[in-house]
Computed example of a mutant assay.
Amino acid sequence: MTNKTTGALSEGRPISTAPRDGTWIQAEIPGHGSDNIIAWLGGLEDEAGNECWAWHFMLEGQEPPDCWTDGVCWASNEDGAPSVQPTKWKPYYA
């Protein structure tokens, strides 16, 4: 359930417990609300050319935070600034 006053996921679980297998989830991102539909996906390369994984926005029409590059939550974005990490999650039911 989402708290109508703060927009926070009142029943959210810590993001560290979220599935990391491509499953879509509803996530709370500080300063960006709690209706964000994201998934942990691979197939990316870091600056050294190694495969890496990250949170991706999944629904068209949803805008990721400005600090996410191309809808992806990197440890640091294309400007070298840290991306705001999701903090809570709950299952997403389409």
Score class of each variant (00 low, 15 high):
Thr5Lys: 12
Tyr93Asn: 12
Ile25Tyr: 04
Asp66Asn: 09
Gly42Lys: 09
Ile37Gln: 10
Met58Ala: 08
Thr17Glu: 15
Tyr92Asn: 07
Ala18Thr: 09
Gln85Gly: 00
His32Tyr: 14
Ala27Lys: 05
Lys90Cys: 10
Ser10Ala: 15
Thr69His: 11
Ile29Ser: 01
Pro14Trp: 09
Gly33Glu: 06
Asp21Pro: 03
His32Pro: 07
Ala39Leu: 08
Leu41Tyr: 05
Val84Arg: 09
Trp53Met: 12
Pro64Ile: 00
Leu9Lys: 03
Asn50Gln: 14
Ile38Phe: 03
Gly42Glu: 09
Pro91Trp: 07
Pro30Glu: 05
Trp68Lys: 02
His32Val: 03
Lys88Cys: 00
Ser83Ala: 15
Pro19Asn: 11
Pro86Thr: 05
Glu11Tyr: 06
Thr5Gln: 11
Asp35Ile: 01
Lys90Met: 14
Trp55Ile: 09
Thr5Arg: 10
Ile25Pro: 01
Trp24Met: 12
Thr6Val: 05
Gln62Leu: 11
Lys90Pro: 00
Asn3Trp: 02
Asn3Val: 02
Gly12Asn: 07
Ala48Trp: 12
Ile37Ala: 08
Glu47Val: 08
Thr17Ser: 15
Gly71Trp: 05
Glu11Leu: 09
Asp35Gln: 13
Arg20Ser: 11
Cys52Asn: 01
Leu41Ile: 08
Trp68Ser: 01
Glu51Ala: 10
Cys67Met: 02
Glu78Gln: 10
Pro14Asp: 13
Pro86His: 04
Gln85Glu: 13
Asp46Met: 03
Arg13Ala: 11
Thr5Trp: 02
Ala94Ile: 04
Leu41His: 11
Pro64Val: 00
Ala54Val: 01
Ile15Met: 15
Ala81Leu: 14
Glu78Met: 07
Thr6His: 04
Glu60Gln: 12
Gly80Trp: 10
Asn3Cys: 13
Ile29Lys: 00
Gln85Pro: 01
Lys4Pro: 15
Ile15Val: 15
Ser16Thr: 15
Asp79Cys: 02
Gly31Cys: 10
Gly49Pro: 06
Gly61Thr: 10
Pro64Thr: 03
Ser83Leu: 00
Pro30Asp: 08
Ala75Cys: 04
Leu44Ile: 02
Ile38Asn: 03
Glu47Pro: 00
Glu63His: 09
Gly71Asp: 08
Thr5Asp: 14
Arg20Val: 10
